[in-house]
Write a protein that binds this DNA or RNA. Structure first.
Lengths: 131, 131
DNA sequence: GATAGGGCTTCCAGTTACTGGAAGGTCAAG
DNA sequence: CTTGACCTTCCAGTAACTGGAAGCCCTATC
C-alpha cells in the first residue's frame, strides 16, 4: 500500500511518516518499481504503534527505544515496564504543573471585572509571579 | 544591574533573556559604557512577568501580547480576560489528554508482569492503539 | 603588575518534531 | 490526451531555546 493509505490507516500524516523514516524511527518500506513507498500490514502496524506512543508523550528517541524493544524478540518486559513507569511519573509532574497554572488563571479571571477600568488582576497576578 | 543578576532575580537564564530581547518580548535594557546590559527594577519586573506567563503556558507570541497589554495604560481588562480564558480552555484540553494517557499507561503497567517472558502487555497495548 | 577566574559580549550552529513549498515524475478517469 | 490527485526529493522555516567559540572586562590574589 502506498504512503497515503498508510497515512490514513496509521493516523500519521504522510509527511510525518517520511520524517520518521529519515529519523530511523519508522520502518523503511519496500519500494515499487517507480520508487513509491510500499507499506506492508506489518509496517502500518508499527506506524500505528509509534503514533500511539507519541500521543502518549513518548519522544521520538523513546519511540526508537520502544520500537527496538518491540521488534526485538529477546527483550524482557521489565525494560518496557521501566520506561512506561518513568513516563507516568513525568505525566504526573505535568498534571501537577497544569493544575497549578489552571488554579492561578481561574482565580485571576474570577477577580477580573473585565471592563474598561485600567486595573486588571490578571496582569497584576502575573507580575507578582503568581504560582 | 547586569544580566546575571537580572537572571537570578527573574528566574530566567541569561541566555533566555537575551533571546527574549532579540525576539522583542523582553525589554531592551540600558547599556553601560562598555556595552554590558544594565537592567532597572522595572525591567526585572517585566522579566518576571514574562517568566510567569511562560510557566503558565503562554507562548512567546502571547507573552508579547500580554506585555503590550501590560505596558499599555489604555488597555481594557476585558482583552486580558479573554486571553486568559482561552488559556484555561487549552489547559483543560491538555489535562484531559494527559489523564487519558496516564490511565492507559498505568493499566498497561499493572498488567505487565515485568519479567523475562517475551509477552508484554504494554507493547501490545501500544500496538493496538490504546487510548 | 601579571595572571587566573569569572562574567559579559556577539554570532553561529544545533536541537526536536515537524510543516510547507517547489519541481518534477506517475497514475487513473473521462 | 489532458486533468487532477497522487507520489518523489530537497530545501527552508517554525518555536523556544541551548551550547559553544572568540574575544573583551573586572576583580582578586600572588
Amino acid at each position: 500500500m502506498n504512503i497515503g493509505e498508510a497515512a490514513t490507516q496509521s493516523g500519521l500524516p504522510a509527511k510525518t511518516i517520511r520524517y520518521y523514516e529519515e529519523a530511523h524511527v519508522a520502518p523503511e518500506p519496500a519500494r515499487t518499481e517507480v520508487g513509491y513507498r510500499d507499506y506492508s500490514e506489518n509496517d502500518v502496524h508499527l506506524l500505528r504503534f509509534i503514533h500511539t506512543a507519541r500521543r502518549h508523550g513518548f519522544s521520538l528517541e523513546e519511540c526508537r527505544e520502544l520500537v527496538s524493544l518491540y521488534t526485538d524478540p529477546d527483550r524482557s518486559s521489565r525494560d518496557v515496564k521501566v520506561v512506561a513507569e518513568q513516563k507516568i511519573t513525568e505525566i504526573d509532574r505535568k498534571l501537577k504543573d497544569l493544575r497549578s497554572m489552571r488554579r492561578t488563571l481561574s482565580t485571576l479571571v474570577k477577580e477580573c471585572h473585565g471592563d474598561q477600568r485600567p486595573d486588571c488582576p490578571i496582569l497584576k497576578g502575573l507580575a507578582q509571579g503568581a504560582k
